[in-house]
């Protein structure tokens, strides 16, 4: 069963002795439902990765970094998780994120989606959906609503959207959603 898009899975493992880009590895690409599961079932769950690691799933041709032409004007819907949630919810939320993006759950705005990223960090893990145009307000909001529903997050929980241009240039304390 062919997917609408071909997807590439990337793995990042932090090694401070090497340049950021040298730590980023393309794992594989797939474009069918069956191959998605073959990849998913044979990769380590995020909760088992060591801190500093990321998985990224991006449409083929888009590199998982702000600098890519299809990311640089974009941003991300960010879900920040507490340390306790790694044990209980992290793997589930990542899988729901993957199903949401490969299934093109955002309707006509699915073309705005570039990919999804999970960051495993000691201070707290993060999951995000990256979109290509932060100024496309209608698309961004629609994607955010659908994404929140896909994750089953309670309505009162607020998730934020951050433009990559801000993430790249501002410190965490000045960063606005």
């Amino acid at each position: 069963h062919r997917l609408q898009s071909r997807w590439a899975l990337w793995f990042f493992k932090n090694d401070r002795s090497r340049a950021w880009q040298d730590n980023l590895h393309l794992v594989t690409k797939f474009d069918t439902v069956e191959d998605f599961w073959a990849v998913y079932n044979h990769t380590q769950l995020p909760s088992k990765l060591s801190p500093g690691c990321d998985y990224s799933l991006f449409k083929d041709g888009i590199e998982p970094m702000w600098e890519d032409p299809r990311n640089k004007r974009g941003g991300r819907w960010l879900v920040s998780l507490s340390k306790q949630q790694r044990h209980m919810e992290l793997d589930h939320l990542w899988l729901e994120t993957l199903l949401c993006v490969i299934g093109e759950s955002f309707g006509e705005y699915s073309r705005e989606v570039c990919g999804a990223v999970i960051n495993i960090r000691t201070k707290g893990d993060k999951i995000a959906v990256w979109t290509q145009e932060a100024e496309n307000r209608t698309g961004v909001i629609h994607i955010g609503h659908v994404y929140k529903e896909c994750l089953g997050l309670p309505p009162k929980m607020i998730i934020g959207y951050q433009a990559h241009a801000d993430t790249a240039t501002k410190s965490n304390t000045l960063l606005k959603n």
Binding site: H1, R2, E34, W37, E96, G103, E104
Partner: peptide
């Protein structure tokens, strides 16, 4: 047409043996 799949449809394939 656009290939949109909901989560239940996608989940149905998780443990399906691969065709050879």
């Amino acid at each position: 047409g656009k290939k949109q799949y909901d989560r239940e449809f996608l989940l149905d394939f998780q443990f399906m043996p691969a065709c050879i």
